[in-house]
Amino acid sequence: MTTINSILLSVMVLGGSLFALMATIGLVRFPDVYCRMHSTAKASTMSIFLIMLAAFFFFLADGHGVNSRCLLVIVFVFLTSPVGAHMISKAAYHYEVEMWIGTTYDELSAYNAALDSFSVEDDSDDEAIKNESFSVEFE
């Protein structure tokens, strides 16, 4: 194993763990749920990518042959991590988690208000329900 490859693999392992540390420092320091999603969805995916790639080349050089599970984990995490971040953000917005004071521009609340007002004004069914009489017979 040449020293260039050794240095490259060491840099990848250290870089992967540093990106994981950056992801959690962002998780601690950002003021808002939606901003924390930015740091975690991107940096943790990157750290998995680097460390699994380093493991793949390590076991290739160590005599264990081609270990395709490492590549499979990379593909899986790339496909599912943005979807997970999107779903949590959407659920948090629907649950009305407060946004940070600094957010200045919100078009989604206008869209949601339009959606809610549209469904509330449609009360043509209410008159039909009011005219029915419900009587309970005691036997």
Binding site: V33, I48, M52, A55, A92
Partner: peptide, 29 residues
């Protein structure tokens, strides 16, 4: 303060554990 925070931090814990298992298995060959 909210449930979404806890959910995302548990997912990140899963990612960190995956990285740690890979690094440890590199250590024990």
């Amino acid at each position: 303060p909210s449930a979404a925070d806890r959910a995302i931090s548990s997912d990140i814990i899963g990612n960190i554990v995956m990285c740690a298992i890979a690094v440890y298995s590199m250590k024990i060959h």
